[in-house]
Design a protein around this nucleic acid. Sequence first.
DNA 1: GGGGCCATGTAACCCGTTACATGATTGA
DNA 2: TCAATCATGTAACGGGTTACATGGCCCC
Lengths: 191, 191
Amino acid sequence: MDVKTLCLGALTLGDATGYEIHKMFDDGPFGQFYDAGYGSIYPALGALLKADLVTVVQLAQEKRPDKKVYSLTPSGLALFKKALAEPPAKDRFRSDHIVRLFFADYMSKSDLQAVYDSYLCHFQTQAEKLRSIDIQNFRNGRTFALQMGLRFYETMSAFLVENQGQLLNDYCPNPMDDGTEQTRNQGTGDD
Amino acid sequence: MDVKTLCLGALTLGDATGYEIHKMFDDGPFGQFYDAGYGSIYPALGALLKADLVTVVQLAQEKRPDKKVYSLTPSGLALFKKALAEPPAKDRFRSDHIVRLFFADYMSKSDLQAVYDSYLCHFQTQAEKLRSIDIQNFRNGRTFALQMGLRFYETMSAFLVENQGQLLNDYCPNPMDDGTEQTRNQGTGDD
DNA sequence: GGGGCCATGTAACCCGTTACATGATTGA
DNA sequence: TCAATCATGTAACGGGTTACATGGCCCC
């Protein structure tokens, strides 16, 4: 699902500027399952406008660039619904953090500790963010997705806390002859 | 973290062919937190070879294309460790499924049900896959990452089961007056 | 017999990321 | 004063995905 479609979706929640849509991907309810920078949002909005899937109202502001408020058109909404009806692509998850956790034995203990700390902090922060979102006027799907994200962050941070010892206390740097591969030459001084 | 680096990491687990590395991203222990297709793996391996970060042994096979078994060189290992020591990029999670769950009210109930079913099935399948991986000879980090993945899949599938009713029984299609739920940006500031 | 597995690779394309460019206001 | 927030956009670059190209074996 590309940024254009996601922008359409964002606009079903109400008219918004590119700047505001970006915030939705950053802070708001979208951040959990997608993200997009200005460099993709603004061009997407431009393309959407050309295709009459959105309209724009330009509000002049004296001290800032004009604010361009975008709204969904009926055909934009129709296209979005059509996109939703298509079979979803596979989820895609990429985690530099888990790569490091996985290869813990190739890291120094202090680097590993740092990764652990930043990861835990990340999950806790995200959970906090989600908790602060008001779900009163959300309909079912919104609430569901939000709670799912919350559960995810809470579970992951709980996991990190519970298994900290396994990772950090039992830490043991790679001896480099663990039997996994054919021998190469001596791993000299490294780093 | 790019595919080249990930290939280096894959090779720390033992010599492998491009085909085998691909399987690691597909089935194996890498699938949880990264994925890569042949179209990125083979070129990556080629580049790694040119840079002397891996070596290759070409085994002629009569009935198939030659099998090219790649091995990490000391400098490849060193580079990989250097990459691990760098601060990790933010996790990136993209879920077409959750987008659909979030916008449930813009879908037909049957489409929504289908998305729910396929998502649940996905998590259950993934969990099963991870459970079948033998963790006996894994070191801490490997086990940790694997268990983290397992916890993730189990939690998500449990969440889906627990909250099925909220999503599907309380389902209520969008009234669709004008497509938007509220208005923002009525004026520059307020007034 | 046909589909899936083994096994490798290339090339085009698309899309998104990053960096660049501008600039005033507000709060610490 | 310095950082952050508001606010929009462009251009180049890079990377990965997709599709294309090949072909025999093995199991159902």
